[in-house]
Design a protein around this nucleic acid. Structure first.
Length: 354
DNA sequence: AAAACGTGGTT
DNA sequence: TAACCAAGTTT
């Protein structure tokens, strides 16, 4: 029995879907891949300018593979989830070395590439190769959770398994490319998180949640947890030439691999800052000047950032290396900084804690 | 299995 | 103001 779900969706898509997003033009596996990675947990409007700039700088997988990772990171600066940038660079090299520069069309081989999971692999297969594969992103989860009234939070394995099951069932053999885009568009434009426009929905007649008047119950919400509060010193170390010291952050953890300001343990008191700079960095500094601290909220904790400005008085004993660089402000801003650090350096007053 | 991983928009 | 969360994957 043919699945009417897909047919109705496709008819709706022809009239109302989004047909000209940047990655729909000159569509190939590389462009689909880059867009899919950028779009992970990131809204379309946010991605568009990043996608355009990224494509201009890295037009194909060879260009990306042969670029320095710092170039990739700087193009990712402000997008968040920087593991994606490290992974996309690594995966580009995998494609060149293990697959001769051509993306494999096989789901399992695609998933062997760093940063490509089940849904992203399926998106590439469907969008770039036009072959049947089921995706399950946030939009599809919402549509299917409502259509089939699946209780529970999709983060639970049991719920996720059911959703994948339905995603597979609904995916048609024909027009997979359009279907994949259609179901995401439906979730983004009609079956929205709040106030879904059920009157405009092509699959409303079969929707279990709508029939019960309970679209608001699906998908189940994530259990909430307390966000821990953390604190750190952020040092704006300025030498006699007006340059600022940047440090590369560790490859894992928050802002992994990005350039940022040197941090110091919050256990140090204000009066111990000078000494700590001498001990940990070998830098002689004048009295620290505290500037407006602020709280930055991540998805899983709050971070109190307390910036301190210190002028380096002696000869700088820190030479440029792979992990430390002295840069003038303008250069520093092009280095690929985390968004809050960029704000701190450009408009420190904006963060002021009241 | 659950936590980690960012930022900006929406409510 | 702050919770909630978006074209998820990795550990």
């Amino acid at each position: 029995m043919p699945d009417r779900f897909a047919q109705k969706l496709l008819t709706w898509y022809d009239q109302h879907g989004r047909h000209d997003l940047p990655w729909h033009h000159n569509q190939n596996a590389y462009r689909v891949w880059v867009s899919e990675i950028m779009l992970q947990q990131t809204q379309v409007a946010t991605v568009i300018p990043y996608f355009e700039a990224f494509m201009a700088r890295f037009p194909d997988v060879q260009a990306l593979a042969s670029a320095p990772v710092d170039d990739v990171l700087s193009h990712w600066s402000g997008l968040g989830y920087y593991a994606r940038a490290r992974n996309i660079h690594k995966a580009a090299r995998q494609v060149v070395e293990e697959f001769g520069g051509e993306f494999p069309e096989d789901q399992e081989q695609l998933e062997s590439l760093t940063g490509i999971g089940r849904s992203t692999a399926a998106a590439i297969i469907a969008q770039a190769f036009g072959k049947r594969a089921a995706i399950l992103d946030g939009n599809v989860k919402r549509v299917l959770a409502r259509y089939h009234a699946i209780p529970g939070w999709p983060g639970q394995t049991k719920v996720l398994k059911q959703l994948w099951q339905h995603a597979e069932e609904h995916t048609p053999d024909e027009r997979v490319r359009d279907y994949t885009q259609a179901i995401m568009d439906l979730g983004a434009m009609v079956c929205t998180r709040s106030r879904p426009d059920c009157q405009a929905c092509p699959v409303q007649p079969g929707c279990t949640a709508y029939a019960a008047g309970e679209t608001g119950l699906y998908p189940g919400s994530k259990p909430k947890k307390e966000k821990p509060e953390k604190t750190t010193w952020m040092l704006i170390l300025e030498d006699r030439e007006g340059r600022i010291l940047l440090e590369r952050r560790p490859p894992s953890g928050i802002w992994g691999g990005l350039w940022s300001l040197p941090e110091l343990d919050p256990a140090y008191g204000t009066e111990e800052l000078q000494e700590a700079c001498q001990q940990k960095l070998g830098l002689d500094c004048a009295e620290p000047e505290l500037i407006a601290g602020f709280r930055h909220t991540f998805s899983h904790y709050h971070l109190h950032i307390q910036p301190a400005r210190l002028t380096v008085t002696g000869q700088s004993s820190v030479a440029d290396s792979d992990n430390q660089r002295w840069l003038h402000r303008d250069q520093a801003l092009t280095a690929g900084l985390p968004a809050p650090i960029r704000t701190l350096l450009t408009q420190p007053e904006q963060n002021a804690l009241l």
